[in-house]
């Protein structure tokens, strides 16, 4: 039997008169990467905030890691972590202090050691003792995600983890996500980039107009459309490929 760590049925949520979620059904298997695709304002963040116990739902059932959201929010908070759309880091503290703080708040036994390990894993030893306020956008995102990994939560919510990052930093975040998934963590991420869902996700759901209009693997989604016609076209390099090639070149020299 397949174990669903996230099971959402008929989820509804309105803000005053605006109905954002109109009966959403989502299932996420343990250890998989699940991507929720949708345009700006489609309700992706609303879904994440409900699952992370930050926002109350109007109707429907939400079960995370076997716990019902209305009955055991504390247990759910124990099994998840959230990386929001904007890096939620204390900018006056250093990177190391931020990690130690989260480790202490997760009531881990040796917070300093946990912080040191994450700093090594994310190769941030140079920046670790500088204030986060001095970090670049990519660095902030990295420490933000590292903070989410403290205490090895079973499910990680990433709300648009690569929005606003340069291509290099984006690849780096992708790599982290793939490593986490390989280690057995369930990842629920939202994105507006089709390419990101294509690269990362085991399963993709498309949220449109308050409902999930498709939910399947990439292969399954492709089958929804007529088979591709074979045409011969000269492949143009994308600007991103060129950019990354030049950067690589420079670093080798």
């Amino acid at each position: 039997m397949i174990e669903n760590v996230i099971q959402i049925e008929k989820l509804r949520k309105s803000y005053k008169d605006v109905e954002v979620l109109k009966g959403v059904n989502v299932e996420v298997e343990k250890g998989k990467i699940f991507a929720l695709l949708g345009s700006n304002g489609a309700g992706k963040t609303t879904m994440i905030r409900i699952m992370a116990t930050l926002l109350e739902r109007d109707a429907g059932s939400v079960v995370i890691n076997g716990f019902k959201i209305e009955k055991n929010p504390a247990e759910i908070r124990n099994s998840i972590s959230l990386t929001g759309q904007f890096a939620a880091i204390d900018e006056i503290l250093t990177g190391r202090e931020n990690l130690q703080m989260i480790a202490k708040l997760r009531h881990l036994r040796n917070p300093n050691q946990v912080a040191d390990e994450l700093i090594n894993r994310f190769s941030m030893s140079e920046a670790a003792d500088r204030r986060v306020g001095t970090y670049s956008g990519g660095m902030k995102r990295r420490i933000d995600i590292a903070m989410s990994l403290v205490g090895n939560p079973e499910i990680i919510f990433l709300d648009e983890p690569t929005t606003g990052l340069d291509p290099e930093a984006r690849l780096e975040v992708w790599k982290i996500i793939q490593e986490l998934s390989a280690a057995g963590t369930t990842i629920f991420l939202t994105t507006q980039y089709l390419e990101e869902a294509e690269q990362l996700a085991d399963k993709i759901a498309i949220l449109h107009d308050g409902k999930i209009i498709a939910q399947d693997t990439l292969e399954g989604l492709k089958k929804l459309f007529p088979p591709a016609k074979v045409e011969y076209v000269e492949k143009q390099l994308t600007l991103e490929e060129i950019f990354l090639a030049i950067i690589d070149d420079k670093e080798e020299k």
Binding site: R77, I80, S81, L82, A87, A88, I102
Partner: peptide
């Protein structure tokens, strides 16, 4: 504004 409350609220504290 920086979402620090949200981060704390999604944790078991």
């Amino acid at each position: 504004q920086r979402g620090i409350f949200e981060r704390f609220h999604s944790m078991p504290i």
